[in-house]
Every structure is written in C-alpha cells, then in structure tokens.
Amino acid sequence: MEMYDLSLIWAVIIAFGVIMYVLMDGFDLGLGILFPFAPDEDARDVMMNSVAPVWDGNETWLVLGGAGLIAAFPLVYTILLPALYLGVFLMLAGLIFRGVAFEFRFKSKRTRGWWNAAFAGGSFVAAFAQGCVVGAYIQGFETADRVYTGGAFDWLTPFSVLTGIGLVVGYTLLGATWLVLKSEGHVREWARGLIPGLLIGVLAIFVIVSLWTPWIDPGVFDRWFDHLQVIWLLPFAALLCAAGIYLATRRRREGLAFLLTLGLFIFTYLGLLVSRWPYVIPPDYTLWDAASAPESQFFILIGVLFVVPIVLTYTAWSYWVFRGKVRVGEGYH
C-alpha cells in the first residue's frame, strides 16, 4: 500500500468521474434546457428519445462521485456539501424532477405539459446549480479547523452566477451538437441554427471567466503567470475547439462538431483543475490533507477497480446499441 500514492490514484479516479459526469449528463441536461424552445412536440419526442436510453447511466457517475468522495476525500465531502447546502438541494430536486419526467412523459397524454415543464425546469436548475458549484469552487471556501465556517449563500456570488450561466449555455451547446448528430430533418436544422449563437455565448463567458479567475486569488494568479507556461496550451486548445465547432457545423461534420464540443469542455475543465491543483478545498487543503486513511482508500479501491471497467463497458455498449439517428415517431415510448 505504501508503494503507491493512493490519494493521487483516487484524485485521478474522481476527476475522471466528474468529467465523465459533466460530459455525459451535460448533453442530456442541455436537451432539457432546449426543451421549451423546440419547434414542436415531435421534436421534443426526438430529443428525449435521443437520450432516453442512456441518461440514467450518465447520472450514475454523479452518485459514484458522491460516494467516492466520502470514501476517499471525506474532507471535500464534509466541507463542500455544507458550503453548497442550498445549491445541492436545488440540484438534487432538479435532477429528481427531470428523472421522473423522463419516465412519465412517455406514458402520459393529458399531463404531458406538466412533465415537459418538470423536465425543462429540472434540467435548467440542475445545470445552473452545478455551474454555481464550479464558480464557488474556484473562489474557495471559508474554513477553520477542517470545518466550513461560511454562510448559507457564500456560494452565490456574481462570479458563481456567471459560471452558472456559463454551464447552462455550455450544456445547451453540448445538447445542440448532440441533437444535430442524432436527428434529421427539421429537428436537425433547428438545432444546427442554434449552434453559432450558443457558441458565441459560451466564448463570451469563457473569456470573462478566464480573465476574472486569476484575480480571485493570488494562488491562482501565480499559477497562471509564473513559470508554468505550458498550461496556457489548455485555454488555447479550448479556443481551437470552439473554432472547430463552428467550421465543423458549417461543413455538416456532425460527429466532429460534437466531439469538439466535448473537447471544449475537457480543456476548460483541465484549465480549472490546474488553476487550483493540488488544492481540493481551496484555498487551504490539498488532496493529501483531505484524504481518508490509506486502509480505507485501499479497501474501497478494490471494489471500484472491479466495477468501473464493467460500468464503462456497459456504457460503451449502450451507446453502440443506440447509435444512429432517431426518427420522428420511432423508438422509445
């Protein structure tokens, strides 16, 4: 056990789980946000059908992340959750509503409008709350003696609202490129038309957040303006992805546009990670401060190493099975 840095292994596992969640639940949350703006009910059917087979698999990463945190980095769990108390509630309520809406919308006719609203509202609230969490995380948390000491609304600041909106727009872009990939006819054309506007929105917020972030904390400033120039490749790569999305959409390279949107998210995510590395609870605690006992990390690592490959295989398999376009009036019911 002593030969390996278990905390580091766990940091990689959880960072991987988080980005898996963001990428995978991101596009189905994005579809939910687009839901009220869809041209007609047929389009909504297609939108939901395109993610219905996979969305709950997507959300398993969130639960795995939550459970993994308390096992491997309990301090993160016990400071972040109290600090984000109301935000966490909003996110959970949103996720529950949209999850149930997924199931019952297809089985209802008279009450369909309500389930549409629950799906859209739940998706929006969950996405916004997650975006605020990102902002709150960059800002750091007020702690004393390993306990959160801040207030109930510390997570809600102009900066975190901006990141909240940023994630909403980002998820929506992800949802739109996904929908272009998975649909045809008028649904695809509608989604395609949204991409340039969403891309501009994402870029605008990306630039503001990027310029704002180094000034939040001297530690972040040093990280970006000290000797580690190589990290400037990350925002640069993200911008390249954004340009690529625009070009790929114009040339109707649907798969490429979606993959580049995933890339945009990944590089932005990595940029955020390096801003604060190795602090998992900025500004005071590193991942080693936050770790649980090595024997506990090891005990659960065995189970995770056994199950995660199975979950990944299963996930890949379900995406493979449901590959291709979703047509109006087809598939899920």
Partner: peptide, 20 residues
Amino acid sequence: SNFSQFASNFIGPMLSYEVI
C-alpha cells in the same frame, strides 16, 4: 458533516460498496 468527517474511514467505504 461532522459525523461524516469523524466516521468516514468506515462509513465511506461501506456506503461506496453499496453504490457499487
């Protein structure tokens, strides 16, 4: 959170195994 912080070395892996 204080309970979680105090007992996470035990309850963390237990709850995670349930999820798994």
